[in-house]
Simulated assay, not measured.
Amino acid sequence: MSAAFETRSETLPLTSMGEARDFFALLKPRVMFLVVVTALGGMATAPGAVHPVIGLAALIAIAVGAGASGCLNMWYDADIDALMARTAKRPIPSGRIQPSEALAFGLTLSIGSVIVLGLVANLLAAAMLAFTIFFYAVVYSMWLKRWTPQNIVIGGAAGAFPPMIGEAVVTGDFGIRSLVLFAIIFLWTPPHFWALALVKAGDYARAGIPMLPNVAGPAATRRQILAYSLVMAPVAVLPALMGFGGLAYLVVSVVTGLAMIGLAVRVLRTTEGDAAYKAAYALFGFSILYLFLLFAVLLAENSLGLMWALPKVLG
């Protein structure tokens, strides 16, 4: 950890000052929410069905596992979090929770969530959850994030696994449907995070994190954002073309995909002053809504019997 954080940590009390909300914040609840939505999408589009009680218990285990990986990420990143304005008030760098407490909390939730998922669902789903936690907490947080500007690209796989885990809960396996959903999230991650990195480039520079804008420059980052958006948008239409997304999904995926591309073009063309920051932040904000809408519509269509087969619509 950095000298600044070590010096600060020496002055922290030996007992926790954290409240329940501080421990909850360690779980990155906004990320947990997206994990729940995407895992539900994988469960809803999987062939077959699962008992509602088992499905709910499995979903809670997946959410807790996602929170556990976020907690371990915050434990390891406490030194660089203390250097960035965006993260300095998190529970560990602010001194409300001790690093050792966060580590114990994260490990306990990690082990518990994997065990519970194995008991209520199956071993494959549990193994995939364990691998997801390991990938995010170790491969991404401890290695990729501080080593390569492609950290988000490779590390994005961790956030893309929930639909596959969801399908494994239902079927004991995973197939092309959840792989397509994996691809959508994987391709969505770089434009989402690089848009934020354009806005917070100074923060990342102070923390020594090799985000793409700090290594390759803002212009190259803007081109990469557009490139990924151009690939992501048509991939996001595949569920409708493959029959596990209906007419509503087709319309939403096309319209919002075009909006993502339009915002990426705006980011590419807007390079100066506050307008550039506003363009990047607008893309970052809309990208969250984009992913949520895709999976919410998939979930509604598959869970509420609102599916319309695309061949019938066209023909």
Rank of each mutant, 00 (worst) to 15 (best):
M1C: 09
A3T: 10
T7P: 00
T7A: 14
T7K: 14
L12G: 02
P13Q: 10
L14F: 06
T15Y: 10
R21S: 15
F23L: 15
L27I: 05
V31S: 09
L40G: 08
G41N: 06
A49R: 13
I54Q: 12
L56K: 01
V64N: 07
V64M: 14
G70Y: 13
L72K: 09
L72I: 06
D77V: 03
R86I: 10
T87Q: 06
K89C: 08
P91M: 12
G95A: 02
R96G: 08
Q98W: 00
L103K: 12
A104N: 03
A104Q: 08
I111E: 01
S113H: 03
V116R: 00
V120L: 05
A121W: 06
N122V: 05
F131P: 00
F134V: 05
F135A: 03
Y140Q: 06
L144T: 03
T148L: 06
I152N: 09
I154G: 04
P163Y: 13
I165K: 01
E167W: 08
V180K: 01
V180I: 15
L181G: 00
F182K: 04
H192I: 13
R206E: 10
R206F: 03
A207S: 06
I225F: 13
L226I: 07
L230C: 12
M232L: 15
P234T: 10
G243K: 05
A248Y: 11
Y249P: 06
V255E: 02
I261K: 06
G262F: 13
R269S: 09
K278A: 15
L283D: 08
G285S: 12
L289I: 14
S303N: 06
M307Q: 11
M307W: 03
A309V: 02
L310R: 00
P311D: 00
P311S: 00
